[in-house]
Nucleic acid binder design. Structure first.
Lengths: 154, 154
DNA sequence: AATAACGTTGACGTCAACGTTAGATTTATC
DNA sequence: GATAAATCTAACGTTGACGTCAACGTTATT
C-alpha cells in the first residue's frame, strides 16, 4: 500500500498529475483510508507506467490512451472477446474491425521505428563530427604545450 | 516558388500553422513578393517535413525542435564548428557540451525504440488473439451451415 | 476594370494538460 | 496531545499549439 507521494517518486509524475489521471478516468480510483487518503497498490504503479509509456512513446493524447487502455483491458482481461454480443455475425464484424485497427497501429509503429533510426543515424554523424573536432583541438593544444616544454628545456 | 496554400497541401499543415512556425522562428522566413506575399522554395517544404517528423515521431515540443534544428544547422552548414570562438579552451568546452547532449539524445532514442518494440509485441499478441477468435467463429458458422446443407440433402 | 479568390496582419478564443494556491483534514512524530 | 508534515478538495491560473475572425491589401480571372 503506497500513498501518493511514493507513487509520484516511483513514476516520476507529480501528485497533481496522478490525481488528474484518476479524475479523467485514466486510472482506476484506489481505495481510501478511513480519513480519505488514497492507498495505491503495485498494480496502480504499473498501470501508470504503461500510461506514461503510451504517452511518451506513442505520443497519444490522454483520450487516445484511455481508449487504448480500455482496449487492452478487453483483450487481456476476459477469456472470450465480446461475449456479451450474441449474434456471431456482429461479433465477427467487431473482431474484424479490431484486427484492422491493430494492423494499422502495428504499421504505424514500424514507420515510427524506421524514422527514429534514420534520425539516430543523423545524430551519430553529428556526434562523430563533434568528437573529431574535439580530438583535433586537443591535438593542437598538445603540440603547443610540447613547444613550450621544449623551450623550457633548452 | 510556392505560395502558402501549396505548401499547406504539400505538408498537410494548415496555413495558420505554417505562419506560426515562421513566427516562432521554427522556420526561416521566406522571400516576399512586391505586395508582401510569402514565396516558399522546395527547401522550405523539406524543412517543414523534418519539423513534422520530429514533432510526430519524437514527440518533441516546438521549442525542442527549434534547438535541434539550430544544432543541425550548426553541424551541417559550416566546415568548422564554432569558428567564431577564438580561444580553444572555450571551443573545447562547447564541443564537449554538444557531445554530451548528443549522447543523451542517442540514448533517449534507443530507449524509445525499445519501448516501441515492447508495445509492438503486446499489440501483436492482441492481434493473434483476435485472429484466433475470428477463426473460431468462422469455423462454428461453417459447421452450422454444413448441418443445414446436410438437412437439405436428406 | 471589376470581381472573385487568395494572402496578410493583428487580435482574441480555445483546448488539453497540468500548475498553483488556499484552506481544511489526516497522518506521523516527538 | 501538541506540532509538524503530508493529503484532500475546489477553484482559478498558465502554457503550448494552434483556430477563428475581421479588416484590409494583393493576384488572378473574366
Amino acid at each position: 500500500m503506497f500513498k501518493i507521494d511514493e507513487v509520484a517518486r516511483e513514476t516520476g509524475l507529480t501528485k497533481r498529475t496522478i490525481r488528474y489521471y484518476e479524475e479523467i478516468g485514466l486510472m482506476p480510483a484506489p481505495q481510501r483510508s478511513e480519513g480519505g487518503t488514497r492507498q495505491y497498490t503495485q498494480a496502480h504503479i504499473e498501470h501508470l507506467q504503461r500510461v506514461i509509456s503510451a504517452r511518451d512513446v506513442l505520443g497519444f493524447s490522454l483520450q487516445e490512451i484511455q481508449e487504448y487502455m480500455d482496449y487492452a483491458q478487453a483483450l487481456t482481461g476476459q477469456r472470450e472477446l465480446y461475449p456479451q454480443i450474441r449474434e456471431p455475425e456482429r461479433q465477427l464484424e467487431k473482431l474484424r474491425e479490431m484486427d484492422g485497427t491493430l494492423e494499422a497501429q502495428l504499421r504505424a509503429l514500424d514507420e515510427k521505428v524506421s524514422k527514429i533510426l534514420a534520425m539516430k543515424q543523423e545524430l551519430e554523424q553529428f556526434r562523430d563530427r563533434v568528437t573529431a573536432g574535439i580530438a583535433r583541438i586537443e591535438k593542437e593544444q598538445d603540440q603547443s604545450e610540447a613547444k613550450i616544454t621544449e623551450g623550457k628545456n633548452s
